[in-house]
Design a protein around this nucleic acid. Sequence first.
DNA 1: CTGTTAGCGCATTCAT
DNA 2: ATGAATGCGCTAACAG
Lengths: 354, 354
Amino acid sequence: MTDPASRRVTLRDVADHANCSTATVSRALNSPEQVAVEVRARIDASIKALGYVPNGAARALRSQRSQIVGAVIPTIKYSIYARLIESLERRLAMDGYSLLLTTHDYDPVKELEQTQLLLTRGVEGIVLVGDSHDGGLHQLLAKHRRPYVNTYVFNPASKHPCIGFDNRLAAARAARYLHDLGHRRIAVITGPTKNNDRQADRLAGIRSALEERGLDLPSSMVIERPHLIENGREALEILFQLPEPPTAVLCGSDVLAFGVLSECQELGVSVPNQLSVVGFDDQDFAKHLRPALTTVGIPAVEMGIEAANYILRKLNRQPANNFTNLDVQLIVRGTTMPPAALSTQGKRAVPVSA
Amino acid sequence: MTDPASRRVTLRDVADHANCSTATVSRALNSPEQVAVEVRARIDASIKALGYVPNGAARALRSQRSQIVGAVIPTIKYSIYARLIESLERRLAMDGYSLLLTTHDYDPVKELEQTQLLLTRGVEGIVLVGDSHDGGLHQLLAKHRRPYVNTYVFNPASKHPCIGFDNRLAAARAARYLHDLGHRRIAVITGPTKNNDRQADRLAGIRSALEERGLDLPSSMVIERPHLIENGREALEILFQLPEPPTAVLCGSDVLAFGVLSECQELGVSVPNQLSVVGFDDQDFAKHLRPALTTVGIPAVEMGIEAANYILRKLNRQPANNFTNLDVQLIVRGTTMPPAALSTQGKRAVPVSA
DNA sequence: CTGTTAGCGCATTCAT
DNA sequence: ATGAATGCGCTAACAG
């Protein structure tokens, strides 16, 4: 059956076997309704008998459609982008598209190179993360006229299509919530802000929200570390060596918050009594930490689906919104409450929602 | 500079611009040493000036090399495979290869379809997870004569190359460890075993290890659930409604173990005093849970690197081991100790960590 | 509804 | 060291 010396089975072979032309086989594959049922049946049988698998390179070369979409993300390691990738891949697969995945480790030059590589590979569209990229990247995208979309950000003033949320507002809301609870010594543990507009925006959002309330955010209260649990721990340790430790801490990710909670247990710092903690992402584990983590829930799955939708619509020349703002939610759970000073002094009753 | 009405820049354009033939440009790209330095410089300049990006489809069609490797994994959601994918992608990128990623949700038919799709896309090699696949998959692989490798498993008796570890032995070691501590009522919370030889093997390994010690594993002590934290919680709840709850529980993944620990806190079950817990994977968070999770550390990163190495070596016709067994470690941390019965009866002094 | 024809862009002979 | 010519496998005009 399987001839070990045979070369690859081609459309030609199928055509010969089914006694028709290659064009007909091609049609049977791509627009079956244009082929007589009888012929189609013969072709299908031949395809099966020969074990024919189309050659995507030839198809892509001829039709200029590779059926591949590329994604360039910072990293898969932090699991932050896993949900995005998962939903993106699924949505694309529904329309017969495959996902070419590359990472750049927060290096804009690598991001540019990887994008160029994706274009070389013939991807029809590109999904990016963030709004700020190397200038060359935008040139490249413009030159190739391939649909692309930035995710994890929403900026209607941008020249580039995006699907995501306003990182400033989201983080600001969390900051205001802590302020409303009565916290005045609020610290921030942020992920790397260099080449990462999402983290930078969140930090900026916090800063401006606190300033609006007349609060300063001293540099001693801002710690920047990669998104690793141990870094959250380390950051908390540093904060608690301060002469005046914070009563609340806003984290740039749930991963960092995880580390904070972990270290609090280690140091005997009681959460939320002594310290309130807020995460960002609402990853799966957030609700299962003890106490359950108060955090900012982001639409990771939706971003993946909508990014895929956007690219697919563009590819099919259907209208598509260039700017999609998705909802973010402050999810109040067990790691936040009014600061000890307040409750002790009984200055004010502060309701804690569920 | 960028002509908006221009079609894609091709090799032809570069050749014209650099005043040479397309063959020479092609050589300058693929075997620069064969081209005179002077001409090469001219070509490089032209490439830059025109913003030329090679057409991968044409290149792949002509040379039969797509520079793409495919991976078919169960899912990205559980983050279990994130480290594998991350290291795989990085290693491939080092050699100029891109990664086409697809998922199959533990559905063998989908796995077959996805693999076929990858072949259509022209991947040069394929990385799979597990040793048991649909029969059609192996036929397909054989027919296309593309290098492929199973990961997460080690089975030298298999007909298929693999890079991984012996799931039976790894899980058996954990079971023996619990038995050695004195546990006799040991429960298992396993991930889905259907179409998942890794989980099935781990369960089998546990069962036989216990049988060797004269211990039975009743069905009431085995709970099978997808790898979600909440499922770990639910499973523990069920186990503790048993007339005789276990004194130790072996989990098929750290994620399930996470849920167990979480629920223990909820129910006031003291770990490890009342219950010992062992995970599987040693994910990042394992050491940061409180108590720190005793677990089986698997070589996720190495598997990715070695899988890439294997495929790359095969593609370059270099010798490569078809069977690679990587080390697994039982990492004893804070969630395991002898059962309460033993310590209560004062048979033995048991230290309680932290 | 089907066949004929002509390339898509590139890498690779074979010459020179 | 370089150029001319060929075809990888397929789809899309165009006829019929």
